[in-house]
Design a protein around this nucleic acid. Structure first.
Lengths: 305, 305
DNA sequence: CGTGCCAGGTGCCAT
DNA sequence: ATGGCACTTGGCACG
């Protein structure tokens, strides 16, 4: 076997060859720098200023087409080289990707086996592991954040193991061949702003209660009941208690059940003479849900976030 | 800018430079299997036979360290080269991965924006798109299978767009810098066999009904009611109707609501003199669920898949 | 295609 | 840690 070609200069070892990555939760403790760069995004690929993850800076003498922006790559490596790249990458808090022919074994809350096939494996520095095939949005196997990744070469195979406790779970990926391995130095401090959630719907209703009904007055959100917290709690123009259950999309019977539990709990908790109305607020309801609403004497108001 | 280095031999063009990937759905069309498996589950599921995806075989003459197992790679490419690799890869039904600094915009069922950061983007030949950061099991942004991917170089940026209809949704990833791009020729015809599902629990109960209760006799599975299909339907040694709702793990109030709806529907549908018992079968229940069970006169049997 | 429901659901936040 | 619930939930099976 020829020495596998390697591109990229690689990072300095974070320690004396850290045996593996420890699960990190803390995220850039003192992240001061403006998370929204106002202007002047760097057009070149050199990262400006501080590399946070990397304990020491990249050897800058290396031309940028060999070690650009913290990427290390191996093509068709032997098992030992692949394992070394993975271990080094994880030790440096890089995001590691492997592609090749492998088998996958999982044991934990359930158990599963997966025969040989070409898959893409991603190992994250926070302990998450993902095994993707060419199909589907969901990984065919995975491990949640908080695991410890370990990679070693065993009898010509590159073996990745991600393990966690409580619950005890283990994922083992055995590569007979690694076609490609890469370690990416990631920095991402942005969180996406999502529009159109249930929280947005709630906000809209609180700003303009008449959207639900003329004369409706919200009194509290997340009001506690023995059956759980009510989305919006208020009263109508006749002084009757009104419970709103909000959904951002078309709902089925489960949401009606939820609302019904809250209404029942409040009817028991409030004075016997208190009338309690339950109102489901959502874009639309299914047939079965509508029937259930009628059966339980509940109401529906169509509203879209 | 120097010509970006490329490793790997590349595939034969699937056509005259296919403009982009068309969403493929077909996957093992005749996936049948009865809803009430009396016995004899298929133990193996390895798909025999041919490579479906690739129209023509790989050029096998290429040395394995340059074009190993269908991998094409670019490190620090300019926008045009990156876009070309992505387009070619998708056209050849490859799994494409991009890593670099990008922004992400989504609009569809909801909407979201994500500022600049280093992310890993995966484009699958079935139309799925995934944007991963260094944290979390879940992608920070995504698009389900069935989309059409499109990649082009615009003003020095590499722009990926994944679009679908019904519902109309679009995901746009704008790379200011692509640190690494790769196209993987995937072949995977295995489906993992998972142990410990609700189906396993059902099988166990049908084989040994006394696990639920001495004298219990299953009569049907998935029996239809106006409120939905009941997991297991049967009768006890006194001839009373028994409805089982099965859960593979500890359950909350939602499962009790489900069972309660089935029991209510059957009480209305059967002769007025018919007694109907509802039994929740699961490893355990939460406190609120237990209270709800008592309130509705339902029962619980602890059982683990 | 909509309806209903399971999932190794995951993630977030409360107690 | 457990609990209750939202999620661009995804995925499958069925009418």
């Amino acid at each position: 076997m020829a020495t596998p070609p390697t591109s990229g200069g690689g990072w300095p070892a974070p320690g004396p060859s850290a045996p593996s990555s420890a699960p990190r939760k803390e995220r850039s403790p003192g992240r001061c720098g403006g998370s929204t760069p106002p202007a002047g995004r760097s057009s070149t690929q050199s990262r400006p200023g501080g590399a946070f993850k990397r304990p020491t800076p990249l050897p800058r003498g290396v031309p940028s087409d060999e070690s650009p922006a913290g990427v290390r790559t191996l093509t068709a490596p032997d098992a030992a080289s692949a394992a070394a790249l993975v271990t080094d990458g994880l030790g440096a808090d890089a995001l590691v990707a492997l592609f090749g022919r492998c088998t996958v074994d999982y044991e934990g809350r359930a158990a599963s086996e997966l025969g040989p096939g070409d898959r893409h494996v991603m190992l994250k520095p926070d302990g998450a592991a993902l095994v993707h095939t060419d199909e589907g949005q969901q990984p065919v196997n995975w491990q949640p954040p908080g695991c410890e990744h370990d990679c070693r070469a065993t009898e010509g195979a590159t073996v990745v193991e991600s393990r966690r406790t409580s619950p005890e779970e283990s994922l083992v990926v055995r590569f007979s061949t690694v076609a490609h391995a890469a370690a990416f130095d990631v920095s991402d401090h942005e969180t996406p702003e999502v529009i159109g959630t249930e929280a947005d719907l709630k906000r809209r209703i609180l700003e303009e209660p008449s959207l639900v009904e003329d004369g409706f007055t919200p009194l509290a959100t997340e009001r506690k009941t023995p059956a759980g917290a009510v989305d919006v709690y208020g009263e109508d123009d006749a002084g009757r208690t009104v419970v709103l259950e909000l959904k951002r999309r078309r709902v089925g019977p489960d949401a009606v059940g939820q609302l019904d539990r809250y209404v029942g709990a409040l009817r028991r908790d409030l004075h016997a003479d208190a009338e309690v109305r339950g109102v489901l607020v959502a874009p639309s309801v299914t047939g079965r849900a509508r029937a259930l609403l009628a059966e339980r004497g509940l109401e529906f108001v169509p509203l879209t976030p």
